[in-house]
């Protein structure tokens, strides 16, 4: 509804769309990075010696005979933690556009209060979720 206003305030903060020209150098950098990684991988496999044997092939477990497989189940707390992370990270992603628009509104702009109130409500819901997770012991790793 206030798209024009948002675009104007973004342009004022140097946030306007700046075309693909600026991304050209990123492509060069990506090529260099991939080339560097692949070169290292190939060079080191060609340069070094290569010998093998049944003991050398086995899993390193401080010199003991390996016991069982490493493909085991692990603690469910890591799953819950990952889900909680997703909630908060997505929340933060939503906050970035707000943080670039909101400070550029003129002081006393009625929209300002609206923007602030909406975000406070949004963060408030996450805080409730955070407190619930805390009470449920998601963050208790001991």
């Amino acid at each position: 509804m206030n798209a024009d206003l948002i675009i104007t305030s973004l342009a004022a903060a140097g946030q306007a769309n700046d075309g693909l020209d600026n991304y050209a150098a990123l492509g060069v950098l990506l090529l260099i990075a991939v080339g560097f990684g692949v070169f290292n991988l190939v060079a080191t496999s060609l340069l070094g010696p290569s010998r093998t044997g049944p003991v050398k092939e086995s899993v390193y477990e401080t010199g003991m005979n390996p016991i069982g497989s490493a493909r085991k189940r692990f603690n469910v707390r890591f799953y819950i933690l990952a889900m909680t992370f997703l909630v908060f990270d997505v929340e933060i992603v939503f906050l970035y556009p707000w943080a670039t628009v909101f400070p550029n509104l003129a002081p006393g702009d009625p929209l300002g209060l609206q923007f602030l109130a909406r975000m406070l409500f949004f963060i408030g819901t996450s805080i409730i979720a955070f407190l619930y997770a805390w009470r449920k012991g998601v963050f208790a790793f001991d």
Binding site: A13, A82, I92, Y96, F102, P103, N104
Partner: peptide, 26 residues
């Protein structure tokens, strides 16, 4: 993984505090 995921959230929030001052992510 757990460590890097966990510390990404406060890091992002700290960055947000700065973005609010500058009003720009450039």
């Amino acid at each position: 993984t757990a460590q890097m995921l966990s510390y990404e959230i406060p890091m992002g929030l700290c960055v947000l505090c700065v973005l609010l001052l500058a009003g720009s992510s450039r």
